[in-house]
Amino acid sequence: MSAGFVDFHRIDWSTAWFSPFAERGKRWQRVALEHPDDYLGELRRDARASAQTTGRGAPLTFIAQAELPAGTAYEAHIAATGGVPTRENLHDFFNALVWFSYPRVKAVLNARQARAIARDGIGGARGAERDALTLFDENAVVFVACDPALSRALVEFDWRRLFVTERAAWGRRCLVRPFGHALLEKLINPYKACTGHAWIVEAPPEFFDWSATRQTTWLDETVAATLAAAPLTSRLFAPLPVLGIPGWWPANRDSAFYDDERVFRRGRRVGAAELRTPLR
């Protein structure tokens, strides 16, 4: 068995961050551990059944990392051929799972990356746009709220309001969905300072009464539409220590959990003109 597949034993599907991916993820995990030679085949079968596409409309599939031609940019290859180079490790496992959960968002990210590479090449610095796209792809969480005051608390680092005073709002007026596959990989070994980059989405109040499947579909469509057109910089994200999210970590039931300013740092207050919510 691949050394990378051994790590698949460590996934705890009961956690708040892995549970949204559990239905498909458990099956892939079982194949990786019991029939590792068929792992890529399992991903490919799911891709064919889904009829999903990548950034330029090529049918989604998964290829071994060794099949990526030397000197070819990863994102450009995916856009041109549909083939996502995939290693036998947790990082690429979570990346593939996100392709199936948020196919429109992943396709838009891929399309924009491919366009930026075609325009600027792959040498030297990536630039602000590609940095923001990579940040979203690797480390984003989607913060969904129907109450602008909660979004403001996040942007202003008002952790007491967001996590203590407004604790009852979680699941009713705000929630977080994990997205970045590097962040998911880090959460195999959770630590207090683990921080995601929150992309803020305004949702209608009824969003919180929908099924999880309907919520995911709405987020995939809505975030993809915004990402397709929005100028992107890292300033559009708000840092969010994810183990502070109510329901994500048992220790945060004690409000003293948030007293650690090494993690829950103080931030400057922002004016109304600076508070950015990418969706309205």
Rank of each mutant, 00 (worst) to 15 (best):
A73M: 03
A73K: 03
Y74L: 08
E75P: 12
H77R: 08
I78L: 11
I78P: 07
I78M: 10
I78W: 00
A80H: 10
A80I: 11
A80E: 15
G82C: 08
G83Q: 07
V84H: 02
P85D: 04
P85M: 09
T86S: 13
T86A: 08
R87W: 01
E88N: 13
E88H: 12
E88M: 08
N89G: 14
L90V: 11
H91R: 10
D92N: 09
D92E: 12
F94Q: 07
F94R: 03
L97M: 09
W99R: 11
W99V: 03
W99T: 07
Y102A: 14
K106E: 14
K106F: 09
L109R: 01
N110L: 06
A111G: 13
A111I: 04
A111N: 13
R115M: 10
R115N: 13
A116F: 00
A116D: 15
I117W: 00
A118K: 10
D120P: 01
G123N: 12
A125Q: 14
A125M: 09
R126Q: 08
G127N: 08
A128E: 14
A128C: 02
D131N: 05
L133R: 01
T134Y: 00
L135Y: 03
F136L: 14
F136P: 03
E138F: 01
E138L: 06
E138K: 01
N139T: 05
A140L: 06
V141N: 14
V141T: 11
V142R: 01
V142A: 11
F143S: 03
F143P: 00
V144K: 04
A145V: 08
C146V: 10
D147S: 07
P148H: 08
A149W: 00
L150K: 03
S151K: 04
S151T: 14
R152C: 09
L154P: 02
L154V: 04
E156P: 03
D158N: 09
W159P: 05
R160A: 10
L162T: 11
L162M: 08
V164L: 02
V164P: 00
T165F: 09
E166I: 05
R167W: 03
A168H: 09
A169I: 02
W170M: 12
W170L: 07
G171K: 07
G171Q: 12
R173T: 04
L175V: 09
R177E: 15
F179Y: 15
G180F: 00
G180L: 01
G180M: 02
H181L: 02
H181S: 10
H181Q: 04
H181F: 06
A182F: 02
L184C: 03
E185L: 07
E185C: 06
E185I: 07
E185P: 04
E185Y: 00
E185F: 00
I188E: 07
N189D: 15
N189H: 14
P190R: 01
P190T: 12
P190L: 10
A193P: 05
C194N: 12
C194Y: 09
